[in-house]
Write a protein that binds this DNA or RNA. Sequence first.
DNA 1: AAAATTAGCTTACATCTGTAAGCTAACTGT
DNA 2: ACAGTTAGCTTACAGATGTAAGCTAATTTT
Lengths: 202, 202
Amino acid sequence: MTRAQQKERTRRAIIDAAFAQLSPDKGFSSLSLREVAREAGIAPTSFYRHFADMDELGLTLVDEAGLMLRQLLRQARHRIEKNGSVIRTSIETFMEFVVGNSNVFRLLLRERSGTSAPFRRAVAREIQHFCAELADYLRKETACPDEFAQVQAEAMVTLVFHAGADALDASPELRLQITHRTITQLRWLAHGAAGYGRRPKE
Amino acid sequence: MTRAQQKERTRRAIIDAAFAQLSPDKGFSSLSLREVAREAGIAPTSFYRHFADMDELGLTLVDEAGLMLRQLLRQARHRIEKNGSVIRTSIETFMEFVVGNSNVFRLLLRERSGTSAPFRRAVAREIQHFCAELADYLRKETACPDEFAQVQAEAMVTLVFHAGADALDASPELRLQITHRTITQLRWLAHGAAGYGRRPKE
DNA sequence: AAAATTAGCTTACATCTGTAAGCTAACTGT
DNA sequence: ACAGTTAGCTTACAGATGTAAGCTAATTTT
């Protein structure tokens, strides 16, 4: 194995260790370099061969999370083609992601309103990408007036993310209820935007 | 001055010191007992005469923040009586609160998706109170069907809180744009809930 | 084959943390 | 007036943390 390969492998070990140490009770900011290094199986100071900072590692994690988010969107579109019900399918797909990758979703949730401005910006950027892709979809595939697609997409993402956050702490049955609630909210929004949206006074 | 009064005064000094040390770059979890004590003008160990834990102090802060939130709602109702435009007035009132008490609002935002389950629950409880009061208002004063008032209120609060979070990092002009966007979103929602809401299929 | 690079290690240090132990002095109830 | 309570202080300690300095050994380059 070449040295570059070994290095890349260790880098992944660090990233995976960091993700693994996130939990409902432990956010990125309370991760310590030493603990991450320990879990990755390297000496504390070796960490610096791969990242200048814990911050640099954190931004890498956010990037990876954003990537997963975009993959999720494509997956949802796939399912919609076969299934039909746009809103329901989208929300159910999202909920599966949240439950199956709760650490990743939690990272985004927390750093979105976290204490580091660079982190907040990084998360905002990822979510904005997500919104933009959704807005494109709304323009192409639904009755939403073009000029309101962006605003509608943002509202939808806000509501769905919030539902995801609620679902993280919820029992499976409560989670169904949250899903149901969110479907209702998004339908109202879609209906309102399609009709009333044409004349948003002032 | 009686001893009880002096104690209460120190207690307030601690609470105020904690609020003062919150900032865009520093959340509650990264507050240290020692620093708070220093700012409150007492020795580190004297802290324990007032709170068992930092956690206990934190929950007290959340309580106070919730109180302010409810006062805000009353203030908004006052203004609406004189002004008429329900949605616009409410959002503008909320935005003033966010900008004028950014530390308080940030506390709620962060601890809502924070690392401590008790904190999350405490914030959720405060926000739920807020939602319930708003739902009451919607039932009494608007065309919203009774059985959907709660779901609508939750969506509205979600969107408005999110707008507040965005506004925290925004320039004044961007803040206006956010306000405008949120007004549009809430109007869609209200319209959708009043019409389409009567038949939310499945 | 010799030289240069570098991933990772060990050791070391200064700093900050929460909190335990025990003291003082002022207030309170009787 | 006197005994009890307690708010606050000082001192002390045992971690944990980030990171600097310098070494080793293996891979790359020349």
